[in-house]
Structure formats: C-alpha cells, structure tokens
Write a protein that binds this DNA or RNA. Sequence first.
DNA 1: ACCTGAACACCGTTCAAGT
DNA 2: ACCTGAACACCGTTCAAGT
Lengths: 184, 184
Amino acid sequence: MSEQATRVRRADAVRNRDALLETAKRLFADRGSEVTFEDVARAAGVGKGTLYRHFANRDQLIAAVLRDRFDTLTAEAERLATRHEPDVAVDTWLRSFDSYPTSDRSLAASISEGLTDARSAVSTACTPMKDAFTRLLATAQESGSVRHDVDAQQLLTVIAGLPDGHRDETGSSPFLDVVLRGIR
Amino acid sequence: MSEQATRVRRADAVRNRDALLETAKRLFADRGSEVTFEDVARAAGVGKGTLYRHFANRDQLIAAVLRDRFDTLTAEAERLATRHEPDVAVDTWLRSFDSYPTSDRSLAASISEGLTDARSAVSTACTPMKDAFTRLLATAQESGSVRHDVDAQQLLTVIAGLPDGHRDETGSSPFLDVVLRGIR
DNA sequence: ACCTGAACACCGTTCAAGT
DNA sequence: ACCTGAACACCGTTCAAGT
C-alpha cells in the first residue's frame, strides 16, 4: 500500500485533468493550432498554473490529445496483421491513419514532428503505433507487394504531412491513392 | 522625372536591404526557421526598425529570400515546355522543385503555406511558378501521361511538404519517386 | 496535494526621436 | 529619406502564496 500512495489523486485534480483534456480536444478541433495555452485553461475553468501542473508543456498536452487515436491505430494494425493479406492490411491501415478526425486535423505538424524527432512527447506517444506499422510494412515487403526502398517512418511522415485541403467528409486525402500506387 | 522620384533610394538604404537579405539567407540555412527577426537585424549590423522598414513582416522577408528560386523554377518550366515531351518535362521539373538548396530547406513550411493560402506574401511570390507548372501538368494530362485526378497545386504542396530527413546531397527526397510513380 | 494568478522571458511589431 | 532602439503586445512558462 505504500507504492499505492503515489497513485492517489484528489477528486478535484482528476476532474480538472479530464476537463482540460476534453476542452483541448474541442478547441483544437474548432480553432486549430492557434489556440493559446491560456485559452484552454480559461475555457476549462481553471487557472493556467493548473494546466501546467497536469501537462508539463504544450507538447505533452498535444501528446495526450492524440494518445487515444494512436492507441486505436496500434490495435488496428495488430488486428489487421492476423486477419488479412499483407498488402490489404497495409492499404487498409494507411487509410485509417490518413483519415483525420476533426479533433486532430490541426495537429498534423505535431504528428510529423513526433514521428521524426525522438525528443518530443508526441514521439513517446506514437512509438507503439510506429512499431506496429513497421512490422505490417515489413511483412508486405517480404511478400513482395510493397517496394523494398520504402521506409516505414518516412512513409508515415509523408502521409501525416498530406495537406489539409480537399479532404472528403471522412477526412481522407485525395493524395493517399497516389502514395499507395507509388509504393507498389 | 516626377514618377522616377519614387524610385530614388539612398545608397545606405540599398546597401542595408542587400545586407539584410544575404544575412537572412545565410542564417536560415545555418540555423533553420528558429532564427529571430532580431537575430537577422543584428547579424546584418542594423537596428530592427531598419529590417521592418525594408520588409513589412516575417512573411515578406521569407518571400524575398525565396523569390530567386521561384523565378528560376518558373523560367525552367517555360523552357522545358518547349523542348521536351510532356511527361519528361513534368518529371524533370518536379525533381528541380524538390531539390532544396540548403538556404531554403527550413522554409518548406512557408512554401506550403504560400501555395495554399492566398493571403500570404509567399503566395504572391510563388504564383507565377505555380501557374507555369499548372500549364506543364495540364499538357501532360492531355497527352495521357499523367492521371486526370491530380491537381497541380495539391501536388506541389505534397512535394513541398516531403520530410527533410533522408535527402541526398542534392537535397532531393527519396520519396519523390513514389510520388512520380503514383501520378502516372 | 492541489489551485491560483501575478510575474518573468521571449519575440514580433510599432513608433517617437534622431541624422 | 532613412536609421535607431526603447516600448508595447502576446504568449509560453514559472513560482510564491493560498486552500
């Protein structure tokens, strides 16, 4: 019970953290990456010191906002690996990865940075997803359905960086097909 | 001679503008987009008020830094259009567009923004280039060598956004080949 | 243990005073 | 006509005081 003590949190702290995360998701979705750290705190009804208590900096707040989506994508990669042919699995997964929910649309730059720069908090959050996709891609390459000169991390960075405009209602880019054809 | 009067500039003003532009190119190349506006002014040996006198804001300084490259690329597009088959012209030009000189490498985000957002100063600077490539691409599409569902502006935005890492010594991305295959 | 908001640091931008 | 740097605005971050 002594090591359990570190996990005890006051009810108001839990409430505040949840409110901050929900508020951040909503504001990023509504107004993009221009939202101020202070905006988030005020909209959540707390002081900005509280925001910093729960999220050490902007990067960590963004990582927390994205974590749900990363976890879902990790699980999907593992599921696809066991149930589909390698080429179908890669295509299907990349379509999911490219389909931004509105709440994450404005955070694409942070995702690109997280995939590339290991020092960012987003990098820690997306590593399991990156590893799961790397395995998926390697299998497809071994089976001969994807070119061997394509690097998983680079491929994800390219797709994460596809422009926001011209996406359909599911949030998928018209350019994804170009990339999928190009890696064959 | 009355309308000529507006073009007269004091020698020190011309000297300062040139020094600021050269300094900005060098600093962007050395230290990326993290360079401060004040850094540029100090390194050029002038006050920051002088920098603002010559370039109304950060966006206009970046547009001026990029203008030479945009003009070169515009001229190349027009040259290629008259001397090569449409598909060769498109491939060759896109390889040039993707090959960042070191001085421009860190400005890719501004180029993407300029291609997309008509309000930026970079947009004004890159419009002739965008128009020249649009014509090049349309010709290739009419000749059947490029897919009809590829939009010129989007294509340029995608290529401008290709990640910085893994480029060869000429500054070209290993992913360009994926895109070139994908648009066929 | 947690919250709050004043205070600090940084940087883009403006402008009154100067040559 | 142009230059200069102090001053302002904004925003991310810290921290002393409070509950």
